[in-house]
Write a protein that binds this DNA or RNA. Sequence first.
DNA 1: ACTTCTTACGAGTGCCGTAACCATG
DNA 2: CATGGTTACGGCACTCGTAAGAAGT
Lengths: 310, 310
Amino acid sequence: MLTLKHLRVIEALNETGSLTRAATRLHLTQSALSHQLVALEAHYGVVLFERSRPLRVTPAGVRLLQLAQEVLPKMEAARRDLARLAEDNQPGRLRIAVECHTCYDWLMPGMDAYRAHWPEVEMDLVGGFHTDPLALLAEDKADLVIVSETARHKGVAFSPLFRYEMLALMATGHALAARAYLSAQDFAQDTLITYPAPDRLLDVVRRVLKPAGVNPERRLAELTIAIVQLVASRKGLAALPAWAVQPFLERGYVVARPIGKKGLWSGLYTAARASDAPRAFHRDFVDTLREQAFMTLPGIEPLAGSPHPR
Amino acid sequence: MLTLKHLRVIEALNETGSLTRAATRLHLTQSALSHQLVALEAHYGVVLFERSRPLRVTPAGVRLLQLAQEVLPKMEAARRDLARLAEDNQPGRLRIAVECHTCYDWLMPGMDAYRAHWPEVEMDLVGGFHTDPLALLAEDKADLVIVSETARHKGVAFSPLFRYEMLALMATGHALAARAYLSAQDFAQDTLITYPAPDRLLDVVRRVLKPAGVNPERRLAELTIAIVQLVASRKGLAALPAWAVQPFLERGYVVARPIGKKGLWSGLYTAARASDAPRAFHRDFVDTLREQAFMTLPGIEPLAGSPHPR
DNA sequence: ACTTCTTACGAGTGCCGTAACCATG
DNA sequence: CATGGTTACGGCACTCGTAAGAAGT
C-alpha cells in the first residue's frame, strides 16, 4: 500500500483540483482515481482531499504531496541515469524544427527543463520556414520536428503532444460576442488577421472557412501580441490557441468564442526518424515537452495515443 | 515500471547476496524475485547484478541501490506521519517486558532505531523476572512482552519476530566436535551450562533433554560471555542462539554443532493486549524490531505469519 | 439541472507460486 | 553433486472500465 502510482494521483489531483481532470491527464477514468483515493484514505484512516469543488487538500494530503515532490523526481532521475548506463553514455544531439509560430511560447520552457536533465545532449533550433518540415528529417538537417498533423510518412515516427482549442478572437462589444459560438459564415463580413503562414497551416482556414467556401478579407501580423492588438482595435477577427490568448482574455482586452458548436480543436505532435525513436534521451525530450505543456498551458487536453505515465 | 517493490528487491539482494535469501526475507519465492529482476533488467537494458555467488552489484545496480536508500526511508517516514495524523497525534506508551536474557542484544539497537522514528512514544523496560510475563499485560504493568511461544491466551495478540537456531557449544577439540550434529544422549556425560532460568524457558532442556529423559549435571552463569568462557575452559556444554555465539565461533574460541539432525529452532514473538494491536506506533515497534533483527543477527529466518512488507 | 464523485459488477492482466530444467562452484 | 537461478505454465488477485446512482454547486 502507498505506491508511486498513488503519489502521481495525489500530485495530479492537487494540480487539477478535480478527479475528472486528473484522470484525463493520467489517462485513466475518474472511476479508477476514485477507487485509488478511497482505498488509500481507508487504509490509513485519513482524508486526503475534502470533496469540494475544487478539491481541497487536507494536512494529510499535503504530507503525501510533499512526499511525492521529494520522491518522484528522484525516481525520474534514476530512470535517466539507467538509460545513460544502458547506452554507455553516448552523447546525443537534438536539432529541432518548429512549424508553428506560437509554439515557441511553450517550447522554450520545455527545452530549459530538458536541459537540466540531459545537459550532455546538444540542442539546436533549425531556423527559417520550410515548405516540408518532414523532409528535414530525411535530409538529416533536423532530428525532431513539431507538426500539427500525422499524415503517414515512411520512416517517420510521430508522438502526440497535446490538443488545444482554437478560439475566435474579437473586440469587446463586437456584435458576434452575443453568440455562444461562431460559425464559418460569421467570418465572412470581417477581416481575418493571421500569421504570415500558408493556409494549410491555418486551422480556421483549412478546416472551417475553406470547406464552407468563405473567403474573408485578410491581414497579416507576425506576433501574437500584434494580432491581439489589431483585434482589440476593431481591425478584424482572429483565431488563436486558447492558451495563447488566455492572459488577454483575463484582462478583458478582447473577447473569445468557440468556433463551431463543439469548438475547433487542433493537435500537436513530434515527428522523428523512426530509427531515432528508441533512444531514451529522445523519448524523454518528448515526454518533457508534454509534461511542461500540461504544467504551463491552460485548457489543453491529452491526445489519444499518449504514452502512459512510466 | 520501476516500482517501490523493485527497490525493496534490489536492497534485499544487495544485503543478502542471493536471490534465495532475499526471497525468504521478503516472503516471496526466489522465482518471483527472478521474474522481477529479469524484467527490470530487460526493461532498461542493463544488468543490475552479476550472477555470481554471492551476487555482485553492477554500476547500474548501485544507482538503483542509491535510489532505494533515498526513497524508501522517505516513504516510511510519510507512512508514520499519516499514522500520527490519523490518530490525532495522541502520544503512546510502550512498557516492554523481556523473558529471555540474550534478547537484550538485539532489543537495544531495535529500540534505538524506533526512538528515532517515534520520539513522542514513551518507552520503558519492565525489569525483573516474572513467572507469567503474559500476566503483566492483563495487569496493565506492561504493554508488550517478548516471548518464545504463542500459546493461546485470551485477549492477547502475538506477532512473530523471527526464528533462530540453538547451537550446542563445546570446547575446541572436544570429542563431540567430530559429530555432524548432537543428539540428546550426547549431553548425558557432560555438564550443561545455562542461564539461571526455569527449565521451561531453556529450549534444549524442554524440547530435547527432558523428552529423552536425559538429565545432565548443571551449572549456571548469568552472562553469555561467561557461559562461553566456561565452555572454552572445558567445564561443560551449552546451548545458545547461533547469532549470540557467532563472534566467538569466528575467532575459534569454541566450536558449535546443531542439536538434532534438523537442528533445534526456536521462535520469538511479541505479545500485546489485543486492544492495543491496531495502534500504528505499536505495530511499527514490532516491525522495527523485526527489521533490525534481520539487519544485525546472522542466520535468523522469518517466521510463518510475518506480515508482508507494506 | 448539470457536473462531479461514488459504487456495483464484470473483464482483463499481471504477478506470483509450483515444478522442472539449467548453471555454477 | 549440491545449491541456487531460470523458465514454463497455470491460478488468483487486483486494478481498471462501464454504467448507474448519489451528491454537491
